[in-house]
């Protein structure tokens, strides 16, 4: 785009040096283009080809057409992994917003040490998921973890947490929320500060109470931020991997095997790279549809106003 615009202008003014603006333009976009083509588009195409093959990246392998995709439909383990991912997303996405918004509202008020609180809440987001996972492993250990010691001290039975098949996924949701609630907080904070003061004041002058102001003015004004967060957090949830890898490795009893972890296992532990690539592509399409759908829904809702 930039290159085109330059060309147009250059053509009108000095037709003879047409090549130069071209080169300048490409000079600017070239490195980035190379990176995108090399690190995104090329591997994406390569993975697409891989997903049509029965291949382990070691032996020659063979072209199998859509067989990998047909196998996807009849794979009970993948179905289970999909359910786990869905359950995780359904809890994680609204959870992060519901927790993030009140904290953002609180931090938006003139309280003492506000900057300090803000930093504290954002630090876990900056910490890598690997560190979060290892930390969670330690403090949530059923026998020797500090959380269970505290529970025992309070007279509550010790819990299995990440080692109990019925609790592990829920525990992961809690750990992820702890690790990532910083993002909704920061986004909501920014959005809150963008709300025109006149609107809030006008509402108050009209006799609205604090709750009414929040519902009728603040919340609608936060809508774009919410849409962004829903899409962002959904993509994040669908691609959950690192936390699982560093905590449960999909266990106990595969109860935390989510889609991306499943495809990793297929591709790199069970040597079905072609099948793993097919799972990755299916997930990509689902992610695209979900984000597109969310965007479309949000736009449609905006139209009347």
């Amino acid at each position: 785009m930039a290159a085109d615009a330059l060309t147009m202008r250059g053509r009108r003014a000095r037709p003879r040096v047409r090549l130069m603006p071209h080169l300048t333009g490409w000079g600017f976009v070239g490195p980035a283009t190379l990176v995108i083509v090399g690190l995104s588009i090329f591997p994406a195409v390569w993975a697409l080809i891989l997903s049509l093959r029965d291949d382990n990246l070691l032996a020659p392998g063979s072209f199998v057409g859509l067989q990998n995709y047909r196998d996807l439909l009849d794979d009970p383990d993948l179905r289970a992994a999909t359910l786990h991912t869905l359950l995780y997303s359904v809890l994680y996405v609204p959870g992060s917003l519901i927790i993030g918004l009140p904290i953002a509202l609180a931090l938006n008020r003139p309280i003492r040490f506000r900057a300090f609180y803000r930093t504290c809440l954002f630090v876990p987001y900056v910490v890598s998921a690997a560190a979060t996972g290892i930390l969670a492993n330690f403090i949530l250990d059923p026998q020797f973890g500090i959380v269970n010691d505290l529970l025992a001290g309070a007279g509550i039975a010790r819990q299995g947490f990440l080692q109990d098949p019925s609790q592990a996924l829920l525990t992961l949701v809690v750990v992820s929320l702890w690790g990532s609630v910083g993002l909704p907080i920061v986004v909501y904070l920014a959005a809150l500060q963008d709300i025109p003061r006149e609107l809030l004041e006008a509402a108050r002058v009209d006799g609205a109470g604090a709750f009414r102001v929040f519902r009728a003015v603040t919340l609608p004004q936060l809508r774009p931020a919410t849409v962004f967060l829903v899409i962002w957090q959904t993509i994040d949830a669908l691609q959950l991997f690192d936390l699982v890898y560093t905590t449960t490795k999909g266990q106990p009893l595969d109860s935390t095997t989510v889609i991306v972890f499943y495809l990793y296992q297929q591709a790199f532990q069970l040597f079905h790279a072609g099948y793993g690539a097919a799972v990755a592509y299916a997930l990509f399409v689902v992610t695209l549809v979900v984000s597109g759908g969310a965007l479309w829904y949000a736009r449609r809702g905006e139209a009347p106003s």
């Binding site: 090399g38 690190l39 995104s40 090329f42 591997p43 994406a44 390569w46 993975a47 891989l50 990246l57 691609q239 959950l240 991997f241 690192d242 991306v260 495809l263 990793y264 990755a280 997930l283 990509f284 992610t287």
Partner: peptide, 13 residues
């Protein structure tokens, strides 16, 4: 993760 996988796959070729 897809991004990471993509990078792994990119390094190969």
């Amino acid at each position: 993760m897809i991004r990471k996988l993509a990078i792994v796959l990119a390094i190969v070729p």
